[in-house]
Amino acid sequence: MHAPRALTALLASVALCLLVVACQTADRGTSTITSADEAAEPNAEEPVEAPQMPTAEPRDTSGLESDTARPGSDYREIAMDVADPVRCKEFCNKQMRCMAFTYVRPDANQGPRCRLKHSIPDKVEGEECCVSGVNPRAQRRIAQLESRGFELDTNRPGGDFRSFEMQRAEPAQCQEACENLMDCQAFTYVRPGHKGDKAYCYLKNSVPEKVTDEDCCISGVKQAR
């Protein structure tokens, strides 16, 4: 009777040991999985860089004459949707005809305006209404025109023997018309807006005295051949 009891106790002890080993193995497996999961998670305390905003390109404000007007010689006025003198400057710099500009600040009656000029009027300082400037290519263009015999902002009144309305506002065509006529000694080109919407060309059979500071006109004397 004692032998079976001893065998039963031995078997129970072996079963208990096997159960303990199995539990320890399961615990180690669970711990390993948990560690792997934690390693896969991002570190919540690691700093995250904020997205960088795109930087605006620097704008060229050189040449702006603050609180300065250049009255006269306007050939175009632009109603602007933004109060920005730099844009007025850019309008002028992109046009071959534009020599200077005046930006007029908005007031109670009108919005901002940009006045483009076909010559370089004298500047008037202390004018809070305005910001002006000169096209950096203007001096070179003036030198080129003068080298071809054009007298800018100059009228030669009198001596007309022929005049005609021009289809294109180009003083070179008026000069060419004079060069091609034997009787022509001088010419005066009148810009659009002074005798109507079109430009005019006056051909002269003499060389009248010139009158300067006339922004209506460009004149010249027939070149010797």
Rank of each mutant, 00 (worst) to 15 (best):
D107Q: 03
K222R: 07
H2K: 15
E45N: 13
C92N: 00
A143I: 07
T102D: 00
P136A: 01
R87E: 13
M1P: 09
R191K: 08
E165G: 06
F91C: 03
Q167L: 03
N93G: 01
T68L: 01
P58V: 09
P171F: 12
K195D: 00
P47V: 03
A36W: 09
M182G: 00
T55G: 01
R5E: 15
I78F: 00
V82G: 00
D84R: 00
N180I: 09
N155L: 04
R70K: 08
Q175C: 02
P121L: 13
K198S: 11
R168N: 14
V20D: 14
T154C: 01
A69H: 00
A9C: 04
L10P: 07
V131S: 11
T30E: 09
R87S: 04
S13V: 14
K198T: 01
A9F: 07
V86Q: 08
R137C: 06
C201I: 14
K222I: 01
V104K: 08
T61F: 08
V221E: 05
R70E: 03
L181Y: 02
T188S: 11
P58E: 07
D183P: 02
L19H: 06
E214L: 12
S206H: 11
G193A: 11
K210S: 14
V211T: 11
Q223G: 02
K195G: 10
R141I: 10
E127C: 04
V211Y: 07
A108I: 07
S219I: 15
R70T: 08
A50L: 02
K117A: 03
R137M: 12
C174A: 11
S31W: 09
A143G: 14
R113D: 01
A56H: 04
A69T: 01
S132F: 03
R162H: 11
R115D: 04
Q144H: 12
A169I: 10
E151L: 15
K89S: 13
Q24L: 15
A26Y: 06
L19F: 11
V82H: 06
Y75H: 10
V21Q: 14
E90H: 04
R70N: 06
V124T: 15
P112S: 06
N135D: 14
